[in-house]
């Protein structure tokens, strides 16, 4: 599959594209020389579901290579780290900083934000992007998430932590930036420390994905007696009523990033729309029913649960930073609820 994804089709202007096996069956090297910015990558494929791509190449070129590779095949996707998971990861070391990224302008269109709307004190923030490094970062986050500030637009996009393998007195450490799209940028004295953090993140993501796939895929069993419906939809709960459900429905179903769902919203009633759609990244069908307070997502039994985690993460970055995934019985599972009750506040 790496050969299919990391190929001349993905890099049509590249001077050279190579994928090579090594002596280790779990390690594959790949190189591309495109626009004079070569990228060398080392794929750890020891986990058949979650591959890790290591590189020391320049970040913009490496990012582009990842984009091209993931976009090339519907069998590859990124991991999508929703805000509470990032919050939990930040507690795995000493917190050093964070990045916020929220942008709903694409949802409503440029013409939506006219002068009148921008001057209105009632109008929620359209865009909030910030990077904070230093020991006050967590305090700033707490303030921004406060009820009188911008809780619905304060969406954690990156965390920076200092991580030790053997306890915080050790000289062996890594300083990792982890972004919501699964990108780690690291420096430090211990690669093992970095890898142990990566492994921990994958472990948590994998557990969450397993839960999502066992709970939120919908299907039907046929036996001789009749039919047995299985599963339930994933329900995303918005923290406030969406002001314009139709706009959100139209925007998330364009088939383009970040949501990548293609479909046509059909009105079901006042502030209610149904989208019979396709996840254009992984290719399976997905049905969405969207209301002012919630959104139901029906992923088929053969579908990928990553669709749900991608939707959750991108809803948090583009619609409502406090949207959460309802895990059943009306309860919000702690893994999926917005991280607003406790700030990231471990001492440096």
């Amino acid at each position: 599959m790496i050969e299919q994804a990391w190929s001349s089709d993905a890099f049509p202007t590249a001077k050279s594209v190579k994928v090579q096996e090594t002596g280790d069956s779990d390690l594959i090297t790949a190189t591309v020389d495109d626009t004079n910015k070569p990228v060398s990558a080392y794929f750890d494929v020891s986990n058949p579901r979650f591959w890790i791509m290591h590189t020391v190449s320049q970040s913009p070129a490496a990012d582009r290579a990842v984009d091209r590779t993931v976009d090339r095949t519907h069998r590859l996707d990124r991991i999508w780290l929703w805000t509470n998971l990032l919050n939990e990861v930040a507690k795995l070391g000493s917190f050093r900083g964070l990045g916020l990224d929220f942008d709903r302008r694409g949802l409503y269109g440029d013409s939506y934000y006219d002068d009148q709307r921008l001057d209105s004190p009632e109008e929620p923030l359209a865009f909030l992007k910030m990077q904070l490094w230093g020991n006050q970062a967590s305090e700033v986050l707490r303030v921004l998430r406060g009820s009188g500030a911008f809780p619905n637009e304060t969406s954690l996009a990156k965390v920076k932590i200092k991580h030790w393998l053997d306890g915080d007195a050790s000289d062996s450490f890594s300083v990792d930036d982890l972004k919501f799209n699964g990108k780690f940028t690291t420096r430090g004295t211990s690669f093992q420390s970095h890898i142990s953090l990566v492994t921990e993140v994958i472990g948590r993501y994998s557990s969450a994905l397993e839960f999502v796939e066992s709970t939120f895929r919908v299907g039907m069993s046929t036996v001789s007696e009749g039919l047995i419906p299985r599963g339930r939809p994933a329900t995303f709960v918005f923290s406030n009523q969406l002001p314009d459900v139709e706009r959100v429905a139209v925007s998330i179903s364009r088939g383009a990033p970040p949501f990548r769902v293609w479909g046509v919203p059909t009105p079901l009633g006042k502030n209610a729309f149904r989208i019979r759609g396709v996840d254009m990244h992984v290719g399976h069908r997905v049905d969405i029913e969207i209301y002012s307070d919630a959104m139901r997502v029906f992923v088929p039994e053969n579908g990928c649960g990553n669709t749900i985690l991608r939707l959750l993460t991108n809803l948090q970055h583009h619609v409502d930073a406090m949207v959460s995934l309802e895990t059943g019985e009306g309860a919000i599972g702690s893994a999926f609820q917005p991280a607003h009750d406790e700030s990231v506040d471990r001492p440096l």
Binding site: V218, E289, R296
Partner: peptide
């Protein structure tokens, strides 16, 4: 029942 909230995607 709010009829607009009835799911229609268990069986489409």
């Amino acid at each position: 029942i709010d009829w607009s909230r009835v799911p229609t995607s268990y069986i489409s």
